[in-house]
């Protein structure tokens, strides 16, 4: 069963159609890549998938339920983990604080939040010293790892990543992709929006967006 399903999604911006009749399905345990040229509507689709924008028409089903019925803040904070292209981390906070804040927002209970957050950061390759540094004192690759850890902090079913390797060197890029593969192996549905053919290569399923249309390959 699809964990996430797009049904005839259309989106217009200032009466200009950006997406038309997009119907994609996403399942747990698989890596998906949404590719397309600039202006094809990749970022718009990502915004719709993450609940930051609402489609003009069509429906998004999460575990078969229309997400309109789910509070959009709850959807973003509990059901889907988003890794933004520019990471969107709180720069005055440390890596650990960023992850813990995300857990707080999601309503994660328990006294061992700090150790869980630390474990997550370690699982994406950050040590304790790096975890306690403020974001601006971390490299781009480290920030990307923090963003991944944050998206996993409340254990969502779906991980949505926007150009996760765009600003990284090839070595780091490989390491990050390895993390995503592992996540998919562990039953997560990983959706990557990218224009990189290398990223598309390692994904299980590739969706290509063309202007005003989308089709499964």
């Amino acid at each position: 069963m699809s964990v996430l399903e797009l049904k005839d999604i259309c989106f217009s911006y200032d009466k200009t159609p950006v997406l038309k009749d997009i119907s994609f399905e996403f399942e747990k345990g698989k890596m998906y890549c949404i590719v397309g040229k600039s202006g094809a509507g990749k970022t718009t689709l990502l915004s719709i998938l993450s609940g930051l924008a609402a489609p003009t028409s069509g429906a998004i089903l999460y575990n078969g339920e229309d997400i309109k019925k789910i509070d959009k803040y709850d959807f973003r904070s509990k059901y889907i983990g988003v890794i933004f292209q520019s990471f969107n981390l709180l720069t005055k906070f440390t890596a650990l604080e960023n992850v813990m804040l995300s857990m707080d927002i999601a309503g994660v209970k328990g006294k061992d939040k700090k150790s869980k957050a630390m474990q997550l950061l370690e699982s994406v390759g950050l040590d304790e010293d790096e975890a306690n540094r403020r974001i601006l004192k971390l490299s781009g690759g480290q920030q990307q790892r923090v963003a991944i850890a944050r998206s996993l902090s409340y254990n969502p079913d779906i991980i949505l990543a926007d150009e996760p390797t765009g600003n990284l060197d090839s070595e780091t890029q490989n390491e990050i992709m390895e993390i995503f593969k592992n996540l998919a192996k562990n039953g997560k549905c990983v959706i990557i929006v990218s224009h990189s053919p290398d990223v598309a290569e390692v994904c299980d399923v590739k969706y290509e967006l063309k202007k005003i249309s989308g089709k499964k390959k």
């Binding site: 803040y73 969107n88 709180l90 005055k92 927002i105």
Partner: peptide, 12 residues
């Protein structure tokens, strides 16, 4: 920006 990030990650 901080407000944008907080609301994007689900803070009401």
């Amino acid at each position: 920006y901080e407000i944008g990030v907080l609301t994007a990650i689900g803070m009401k």
